[in-house]
Design a binder for these strands. Structure first.
Lengths: 216, 216
DNA sequence: TAGATTGTTAATCGATTAACAATC
DNA sequence: TAGATTGTTAATCGATTAACAATC
């Protein structure tokens, strides 16, 4: 699969396409044109065709796209066929929410283990996932291949924990701690979920609307 | 404050500036140039000056920016001075995580109430926030001004709940349900936290790296 | 076949970067 | 004053949109 020089913007849209295609498949729809897809997603047909053409030719003139086939192409582009493995670091409320509600398996991932320091949690199973003591992290990682660490520890511990993970060989971190990780290594992928950035973005437009109304 | 024609990209960067400035203030740093800020954030000085100049003139030639002043300007731009009020819809693990760990007050927001249908939760306080039964929502909203509803109900309930909220007068939704809300009204602001989109974005680059390595 | 719709090339639009006069 | 750094205008770069030949 070709993956050269594809912009972030395109990659950010791919999961949205996937969700929409799942939805269409669920509705029993088996073909769709870029025009109709554009209408449903609020994008131009041009953009959609451009996006797909970064990765190959998935459609057919005069017909459009086969929903099931396109769904599989995109899921493959996004790496879902690799079945990446994850561990969860920090089993607080957010960790529990992720284990219980996110559905890693449904999204093509395998959550293999969890780590925490709380004696009430260590040794138990949470949503089918065993909770180890954080002190067993190094040992665990030396015996198991883990693709992604999900970081949901208290923020004051976040940066040290992240650097330990990197030291132990982790190459990708899904960061929920709402701080900017400062890592010693730079070949580690980090994807942040910054709740506050998201809420403030919403807040900006609320404020803008208020001030607009006030002025008129 | 001028807010005309400012691109999403700029707005998305503002909360990051704010976080960095908080950080700098915490470190006791009281002035910074666009050059240094750019180094620390991985942006060009030009971009930073362009971004700020969308909203006003916050710096001083030969000096740079006063951290505290800039921090306040940006927090005002993002609407934090309004002290927007929120209610939480759905007090599961994720809801608990938000109440207990997010720190709405620290970010300038007021979480006023929570709603759920679980009899074990209704009537209790969670992190200082009272949990009402969801059936009291309409009544509550008719008596209280609420700016934002935080939606963290199970996904099968999400769309109906969102439309009820809109019907009851809610104008902004912070959506954690990982589905695309299909709302009847179009003057409602929706900001999504799509966990799966974020994880798949990470997954893409992991896969890309694997395939690159495989080819060499 | 005629109509529909793709993939791709070219045109446009917008965002980022560079340059620099103004000035602290 | 000399050096630093802004705010802004102009230049560049990249992303989106439009157009259309190819073809199902």
């Amino acid at each position: 699969m070709k993956r050269a020089n594809i912009s972030n913007n395109v990659i950010r849209r791919m999961p949205r396409y996937l969700r929409k295609l799942d939805d269409l498949a669920y509705q029993g729809i088996d073909r769709i044109s870029s025009g109709e897809l554009g209408r449903q997603l609020g994008l131009t047909p041009s953009q959609i065709r451009q996006d797909f053409s970064c990765f190959g030719e998935f459609g057919q003139q005069g017909y459009g796209y086969n929903v099931q086939k396109l769904r599989e192409e995109i899921s493959s582009i996004l790496g879902m066929k690799h079945g990446f493995s994850l561990i969860l670091i920090g089993v607080g409320n957010l960790g529990h929410a992720l284990v219980n509600n996110f559905g890693f398996e449904n999204h093509g991932f395998h959550l293999e283990a969890a780590f925490d320091v709380d004696p009430a949690l260590v040794g138990t199973d949470v949503g089918g996932v065993h909770v180890f003591h954080s002190s067993e992290l190094l040992d665990y990682l030396s015996r198991n291949k883990v693709d992604i660490a999900v970081l949901s520890v208290p923020r004051r511990l976040a940066n040290n924990m992240a650097n330990s993970l990197v030291e132990y060989g982790i190459k990708a971190i899904w960061n929920f701690t709402n701080i900017e990780l400062d890592l010693k290594s730079d070949d580690v992928l980090v994807e942040n979920i910054h709740f506050s950035d998201s809420l403030l973005y919403l807040s900006y437009y609320l404020a803008a609307r208020l001030e607009e109304d006030g002025e008129n």
